[in-house]
């Protein structure tokens, strides 16, 4: 028997399985972000190419947003705040799912879907209040194209919430990845909308 002390290390823990749903959702969010930011980039290009005009305050501005079109700030800001709140609620669903709390997870997901519908309603209200006619000019065409695209993405988020809600209601909380992916998707939607909100409604 040798005098050397034989040190035995414990076996390494097996590598944790990677999460396909969450990974795919991250990829979809990256692709969706490129869709929205690409459209906003094109929006910038056209806005920068617009001729100059004098604003009501006497400053020279780009003649992009028609002078007689008001941006409904209450509706747009409410929609932006709604998107942030949805993220909090979606994260509540993840929190509840981790604790196997089917009731609260279902409630959170139903609320997420409901608030998503509220965001859709707010977008429609913005369209109605602005009263833009699609065939009136370049601004109008691009405005409806970019806001319509983001609205379609939000509708897909509502559909995701409903699917996740039915899973939670059925007690399938074992698939926590679905709820994490759902929350991630709403983070992406909120980011995309807030970028749109800043470029289209705030910067005008």
């Amino acid at each position: 028997m040798s005098g050397a002390l034989e040190v035995r290390f414990p076996d390494a823990a097996p590598a944790a399985p990677r999460n396909v749903v969450v990974s795919a959702t991250v990829a979809v969010a990256a692709a969706g972000s490129m869709l929205v930011f690409g459209m906003l980039g094109t929006w910038f290009r056209f806005r920068d190419a617009a001729p100059l005009r004098e604003s009501s305050s006497g400053k020279m501005i780009r003649d992009w947003l028609p002078a007689d079109i008001p941006v409904p700030e209450v509706a747009t800001n409410t929609m932006a705040i709604t998107m942030v709140v949805i993220c909090v609620i979606a994260q509540w669903a993840v929190y509840s799912a981790k604790r196997d709390d089917s009731r609260h997870a279902t409630m959170a997901l139903a609320l997420t879907a409901f608030l998503g519908l509220a965001a859709v309603n707010a977008q429609v209200a913005i369209w109605v209040q602005m009263g833009l006619v699609l065939m009136d000019g370049a601004y109008q065409t691009m405005f409806y194209a970019v806001t319509g695209t983001v609205l379609a993405l939000i509708v897909s988020g509502v559909a995701f919430s409903l699917v996740a809600m039915f899973r939670a209601a059925a007690g399938r909380l074992g698939d926590r990845d679905v709820f994490t992916a759902h929350a991630l998707y709403w983070y992406f939607l909120a980011t995309a909308f807030i970028a749109l909100w800043f470029v289209v409604y705030v910067q005008k």
Binding site: A31, M34, L35, A145, T149
Partner: peptide, 14 residues
């Protein structure tokens, strides 16, 4: 590819 998709949406609506 999504950047192309966004351009397609713009061109189609226009």
């Amino acid at each position: 590819l999504p950047v192309l998709l966004g351009t397609l949406v713009y061109v189609a609506v226009d």
